[in-house]
Design a protein around this nucleic acid. Structure first.
Length: 623
RNA sequence: GGUCCCGUAGCUCAGUUGGAUAGAGCAACAGCCUUCUAAGCUGUGGGUCGUGGGUUCGAUUCCCGCCGGGAUCACCA
């Protein structure tokens, strides 16, 4: 459809050349093998039946053809088959320089000319590895963040936001038109709880009067409600009431429910309070979003969309897709799909979470030409999204199949699970500040930024602290639960964001010095004509790693996994650091070799910057 | 109880559509700064891939059972 699986553009938008549009070496070899098998064994094999993979490090070669599946056609031993194939490839496939056979594995060495050509023809300018938008680019809506307005954001939200933003970047880089949306849950009983507590115990406190960040202030009253509510329940049970009754009949709970009724009846006083307190929260959220570097193209509020699902449910009821019970509640029977029955409207006619999501989905697909809709929501809601798509399908919406739940795992702490009410959450703002603080302490201890103005230094602490946090979270496979150990997250060595950033900063330093010395323009580094001859082993393996980048970007898009980029960029930085350690760059006497190393350095920096930006991580010029 | 997810080094994690002797980081120990940033580089030790079967040329990967952990099945969102 959009891009064929095996091709991509070497050069950016400009450099059209003989190699500008080339097929990857894998598909090239694949085709050759197909032809050879047809010729030698008179058999037409499917591409999927052929196995070509990257050669493992401990063997010589770049690509490996696994010949076991071909033995039934060749009717020879694995070694003989592999050797036949190898010889045939040598003559038919010019990029194959030599081969070796170990057991049933045919290891192919790709010639140096190919790698040199790759370096010469590619535009390492930030577009490398990415696919631009075209006429036929699909539109992808991606919902993430989706906070409640009764408490500040915590570590769990951070994972959601970082994933959501990174996925938008990755999908954009894969030639999609991405629309980032946020659905703010700004109404409901939990919102009323903090409103009520503020009204009863707040004494008119405002963010301005107390100096508190708005979302934190409101969150404090949410906690306060819970404390006071518990006290009431205790009193009631001392008076002989059952725990269940106490929970239901505590005055605070009744008052909160009354407040929700008034809100739905658009009581002016309640609406006023609601508008004011939500306003505080939004200001707080805005700050946190800005600090995290995430953004949205459109923000939906549940207060504006929660009614829209009711109409659709009513229509479904008429068509007999749903059923009404004697008490007036409306249900969807999913027992035929192996699930339970699902409530869609309460007996009092009010809507539930599912009703709202049905409504917003319909609204969005009507409003935008969406080809695909991704919800970045925790795996605790797997059931919800399974039901949502099923119901939309039953309602006859063909686009229901274009809905995808990007289900990510929970963040756990060494102390166990995070629970808002028990105060065991890691607050988002606190965490960000701590990481930036740590970056500062460490930089000062190492004397890294001597000579920088305080503003410049602060900017860099910011980049490093946030880089550490983002990388720590994004490097884990999003589908899996992850452990967040604060002590470990603050480590800036090894497989961490700062390690990658440091590698970048060091390259930039070399490039600055080379520009100062007039050796080359900072962006004008080009590999020399006889690169194929000059490349040493380390430079060659660095080149091969750069070559892999476009594939990694695609794979990250296909699997919706920023972790692939993190793993890749870490490997790349490690590879470069070894090269940097082992070979002089500016001090290299041979001008051609020096030019080659400068170019490789610049290309590496460019790919690091690109990969990191797809994760929403900035890189510093110095650190 | 039904459905679903997870189990890889002491800890945190990688491990491509099934492929060769299962890899990193942290932690521990030992080296490398008169040379482009040592937030770096190099080396050592560390594993019955939870467990028992099955599928096949080959299983950490696919299927089944069991053990252990988690999520969910609300007139909460």
């Amino acid at each position: 459809m959009l891009i064929s699986a095996n091709t991509y553009t070497f050069a950016g938008s400009t450099g059209i050349s003989r190699m500008a549009q080339i097929t990857s070496i894998e598909s090239l070899v694949l085709k050759s093998v197909q032809e050879i098998v047809l010729k030698l064994y008179q058999t037409q094999v499917e591409e999927t039946a052929l196995q070509i993979q990257e050669t493992r490090k401990e063997f010589e070669g770049d690509l490996t053809v696994v010949v076991f599946p071909l033995l039934k056609y060749s009717r020879k031993t694995a070694e003989a088959t592999a050797t036949d194939l190898g010889n045939a490839l040598l003559s038919s496939c010019p990029i194959v320089e030599k081969f070796n056979v170990i057991k049933g594995f045919l290891n192919l060495v790709i010639g140096r000319e190919f790698w040199a050509g790759f370096l010469q023809e590619s535009a390492f300018d930030g577009t490398f590895g990415t696919t631009g938008i075209s006429e036929t680019s699909p539109t992808v809506m991606i919902e993430y963040s989706s906070p409640n307005t009764n408490k500040p954001l915590h570590l769990g939200h951070i994972r959601n936001n970082l994933l959501g933003y990174s996925l938008s970047q990755i999908l954009s880089a894969n030639g999609n038109r991405v629309i980032k949306v946020n659905l703010v849950n700004d109404r409901g009983i939990h919102i009323c709880k903090s409103m009520l507590a503020w009204k009863l115990f707040g004494n008119g406190e405002t963010p301005a009067s107390s100096g508190k960040k708005g979302d934190h202030l409101v969150g404090d009253y949410y906690v306060r409600f819970d404390q006071e509510y518990k006290k009431e329940m205790e009193t009631l049970s001392h008076q002989g009431m059952s725990a269940e009754d106490a929970a239901r009949k505590a005055p605070l709970m009744l008052q909160a429910q009354e407040m929700l009724r008034l809100w739905e009846a658009r009581d002016p006083e309640v609406l006023q309070l609601w508008t004011t307190m939500n306003g505080w929260v939004y200001q707080g959220f805005e700050t946190t979003y800005r600090e995290l570097g995430v953004s949205f193209d459109h923000i939906y509020y549940e207060s504006q969309t929660y009614l829209s699902g009711k109409q659709i449910v009513a229509e479904g009821l008429e068509k007999g897709i749903f059923e009404k019970r004697p008490d007036g509640s409306v249900w969807c029977d999913l027992t035929g799909d192996g699930l339970d029955e699902k409530l869609l409207l309460r007996s009092d006619g009010t809507s539930v979470y599912m009703t709202q999501d049905i409504g917003t989905a319909c609204q969005r697909f009507a409003q935008y030409p969406i080809d695909r809709h991704i919800y970045v929501v925790g795996n605790e809601q797997n059931y919800h999204f399974q039901v949502l798509t099923l119901i939309l399908g039953k309602l006859g919406y063909a686009w229901a199949r274009n809905i995808q739940h990007m289900s990510y795992g929970m963040v756990e702490l060494p102390s166990g699970k995070m629970k808002s009410r028990e105060g065991t959450v890691v607050d988002a703002d606190d965490l960000i500040e701590e990481m930036v603080q740590t970056a500062r302490d460490m930089a000062q201890e190492l004397g890294k930024l001597d000579g920088y103005t305080p503003e410049q230094a602060r900017r860099i602490y910011d980049i490093i602290g946030k880089g550490a946090l983002k990388y720590f979270i994004l490097k884990v496979d999003p589908r899996k639960n992850m452990m967040f150990d604060p002590r470990e997250s603050i480590d800036f060595n090894g497989n961490t964001g700062p390690f990658v950033q440091y590698s970048y900063a060091r390259i930039r330093s070399v490039l600055r010095k080379s520009a100062e010395a007039g050796i080359s323009a900072e962006t004008g580094n080009q590999v020399p004509g006889d690169t194929a001859r000059l490349l040493n082993d380390k430079e060659l393996s660095l080149t091969k790693m750069l070559y892999r980048y476009p594939r990694v970007v695609r794979e990250a898009g296909n699997t919706l996994s920023p972790a692939l980029l993190a793993n890749y960029v870490y490997e790349l930085a490690k590879e470069y650091n070894q090269f940097y350690h082992d070979f002089p760059i500016l001090k290299e006497a041979d001008q051609d070799i020096r030019a080659l190393r400068l170019a490789l350095s610049e290309y590496t920096a460019s790919v690091i910057e690109s990969a990191m930006s797809l994760m929403g991580i900035e890189v510093p010029e110095r650190m």
